[in-house]
Computed example of a mutant assay.
Amino acid sequence: MNRIELIERLSELAEPSYRSFQQKLQVSEGQVYGVRAKALQNLAKQIASTHGTLALKKLLSYDSLSYEETIILYKLFGQITLTEEERLSYLPNMLPYNHSWATNDCLASEMKWIRKNREFYYPYFSTLLNHKAPYDKRLGIVTLMLYYLESTTIEEVLKRLSHVESGHYYVMMALAWAFATAYCKDKEKTLPYMQPGRLAETVRRKTIQKCIESRLVSDEDKALLKVLRKKP
């Protein structure tokens, strides 16, 4: 399937009302066709089975992609069989297409193969936390949240995340998401970061809010967190 055929297929699957909905959610700064997630998943699966790595390389040859093409690219990256070294070599090439919270979180969630070799990929995603580009930072944060909040790595990850500096809304929200997730996994290791001064105040308060809204947090802990939230 060449690009013209892909765009024709996306146009056929597009729903104008869904496109308007996605634009309100700011899923992309570029072209949005309005194709639902299930249809994109099926299309990516079809492309992966018929064109494999060739399709991946072809999409990476373009300077810019539509939102749906980017989602397909990231899904292909998650599905196609590659060596660990090949995946690591492809990762920097994925970053230029990551322009929104939606593309970012799709890429992070598709890389499930990280679980099989966390130690190998950890240095790369840790390095992203120091990048200037906000969505590079968010990719590092969300990936560490999804795959590294384990008993053996959670302390190191929380320490690294606490040093991330950014005033970008979607970076701060990713940090709050990560710390709230960590709290649900290991309250004792995460609670110290809820104290004033450990995180940017916006991140701290948003983290506490997310914990309070979570069904995984007990009423007793929510009461404690509400007290912490009031601390100057």
Rank of each mutant, 00 (worst) to 15 (best):
M1R: 07
E5G: 09
E8I: 07
L10A: 06
L10D: 10
E12V: 12
E12R: 13
Y18I: 02
S20G: 07
Q23P: 05
K24N: 11
K24E: 06
K24P: 04
L25G: 02
V27L: 00
Q31S: 10
V32F: 01
V32M: 01
Y33Q: 04
G34P: 07
G34V: 07
R36C: 08
A39L: 03
Q41H: 11
L43E: 09
I47K: 09
S49V: 08
T50I: 07
H51I: 08
G52F: 01
L54T: 13
L54W: 07
K57Y: 07
L65I: 03
E69Q: 12
T70K: 08
I72P: 00
L73M: 04
F77C: 03
F77V: 01
I80L: 11
E84T: 13
R87S: 02
S89D: 14
P92Q: 05
L95I: 03
H99D: 15
H99T: 14
S100L: 01
A102G: 00
N104Q: 13
A108S: 15
E110H: 09
K112N: 12
W113A: 05
I114V: 05
R115N: 13
Y121R: 06
Y121A: 03
Y122F: 14
Y122V: 09
P123I: 02
Y124K: 06
Y124V: 06
F125K: 06
L129T: 01
A133F: 03
A133Y: 03
P134D: 12
D136I: 09
D136N: 14
L139Y: 12
L144G: 00
E150M: 04
E150I: 00
S151L: 10
S151A: 14
E155F: 05
K159D: 13
E165R: 15
G167C: 11
M172S: 12
M173F: 02
W177E: 13
W177C: 12
Y183V: 07
Y183S: 05
K187M: 14
K189A: 13
K189L: 13
T190S: 15
L191R: 14
L191D: 11
P192G: 02
Y193S: 06
Y193R: 08
Y193I: 07
Q195P: 03
R198L: 10
L199A: 12
T207S: 04
Q209L: 08
C211T: 04
E213K: 07
D219C: 07
D221F: 12
D221M: 09
K226C: 10
V227R: 15
R229F: 05
K230D: 14
K231N: 10
